[in-house]
């Protein structure tokens, strides 16, 4: 059971280091990052000229809902039980998904639903590639040509290694 992930890591880390995994831009950090992704091509209009952890938090809290050209943003999440979701939540909100429940209870009462949830990183890639305005996150080692990386969240190496298993 343990052989495959170990072998994958053994191959993936040098490949990312060499920048051979799908246009990541900052390939030297590719194996240690969560990649924030949008659809490949030029459909992404940008938000306030760039991306930041702060802006990402506002998008995932649905405080920012439109891009610079007025296209609706569709943030997509992994399930609350997914390890990458927990890491993303801590990195962006400094809270666990469960700690965000109170916030979403209040938003639900206001008619605002939390971000769409899909089951896996592959599902995130498909959703982002197929949905105008979609924005998601995957382990950098999962990035391929279907998506474009617009921001990286650096995480500790131990965590990063676990993301690519």
């Amino acid at each position: 059971m343990m052989r495959r992930p170990a072998l994958f890591r053994f191959l993936a880390i040098p490949l990312v280091t060499l920048g051979l995994l799908g246009g990541t831009g900052h390939a030297e950090n590719g194996g240690r990052a969560i990649a924030v992704v949008v659809a490949a091509g030029d459909s992404w209009n940008g938000i306030r000229g760039g991306m930041s952890k702060r802006l990402l938090a506002q998008i995932y809290r649905k405080q920012v809902v439109l891009d610079d050209k007025g296209i609706r943003l569709h943030p997509v999440n992994l399930p609350a039980s997914h390890p990458l979701r927990a890491i993303f939540s801590q990195a962006v909100f400094r809270r666990s998904p469960l700690d965000m429940a109170g916030y979403w209870n209040e938003q639900y009462f206001q008619g605002i639903s939390p971000p769409h949830v899909v089951a896996s990183q592959e599902a995130v890639m498909r959703f982002v590639a197929d949905t105008p305005g979609a924005i998601g996150y995957v382990a950098a080692c999962r990035v391929d040509k279907r998506v474009r990386v617009i921001y990286r969240l650096e995480v500790k190496k131990k965590l990063a290694d676990s993301l690519c298993r």
Binding site: A80, P97, L98, A101, N105, Y108, P114, H116, V117, A119
Partner: peptide, 27 residues
């Protein structure tokens, strides 16, 4: 467990029942 998940097309306690194809949600 009622965390913040929703809108995956199935009912979840505390997040209602979304009908994505119609853009509707019930709760």
């Amino acid at each position: 467990a009622g965390e913040e998940d929703s809108s995956s097309g199935s009912y979840q306690l505390g997040r209602g029942y979304p009908i994505p194809s119609l853009g509707l949600s019930l709760g």
